[in-house]
Design a protein around this nucleic acid. Structure first.
Length: 191
DNA sequence: TTCTGGATTATCT
DNA sequence: GATAATCCAGAAC
């Protein structure tokens, strides 16, 4: 833990970046924790916002790697993505909270730690992420993103909450973590 | 200009 | 397990 994740780290296909993010530490304004669940999306993927090409909403996904792409979903929740190669991004779905618990509970309400960031909308709310953060660089304040040590098992599975591209196994989770949005369905291969 | 549906969550039964 | 809540991008007209 400790290496700052910069543009070079993100200048790769999203499905290669995604597993390397498991175990990394993500903070926004000092609040956040360890990434335990992500999903990869790219422009060849019907489930991706970038599939239809560049639009006003997804323009950040086609910008430089290492930036935050934030969008609102179902009119209620925000989701935080990390931009990788142009047109691809990694959706951050769950954190193990480690920093700024008080601030996060202030935004989310008092609740068990394991429910604080166990889903993309919850995570964004806990960290105070909304459209204001769309397009910000991840290697500068208010973000703080540090590489993990890589000594944990990463499991893969199919992605959640989408209607197209449902068979693409680009969900990556920290094996056995109690902080996931959903447990992995089957006995998935660790690596 | 209007209409539709979603990379979700909370709150029911 | 089922569904309401609630906004905006994209598509259709």
């Amino acid at each position: 833990m400790g290496t700052m994740l910069d543009k070079t780290f993100f200048d790769r296909p999203a499905h290669e970046v995604a597993p390397d993010l498991i175990g990394a530490q993500l903070l926004h304004e000092g609040a956040g924790g360890i990434i335990v669940e992500v999903e990869a999306y790219d422009e060849t993927d019907p489930a991706s916002h970038s599939f239809v090409g560049l639009t006003p909403r997804n323009r950040v996904m086609f910008g430089p790697p290492g930036h935050a792409y934030v969008y609102k979903i179902y009119g209620i929740h925000y989701c935080l993505n990390f931009v990788c190669r142009p047109g691809s991004a990694v959706l951050v779905r769950a954190l193990q909270p480690t920093h700024g618990l008080e601030a996060m509970q202030g935004r989310r309400g008092a609740m068990p730690e394991k429910n604080l960031c166990s889903g993309p909308g919850k995570l964004a709310q806990a960290l105070g992420i909304d459209l204001e953060q769309n397009g910000l660089a991840l290697d500068a304040p208010p973000f703080d993103l540090l590489a993990g040590n890589g000594v944990h098992a990463v499991a893969t599975g199919v992605r959640i909450g989408i209607s197209k591209g449902v068979d693409t196994p680009w969900r990556f989770v920290k094996s056995g973590s109690p902080y996931l949005s959903k447990p992995l369905p089957k006995g998935a291969p660790d690596f």
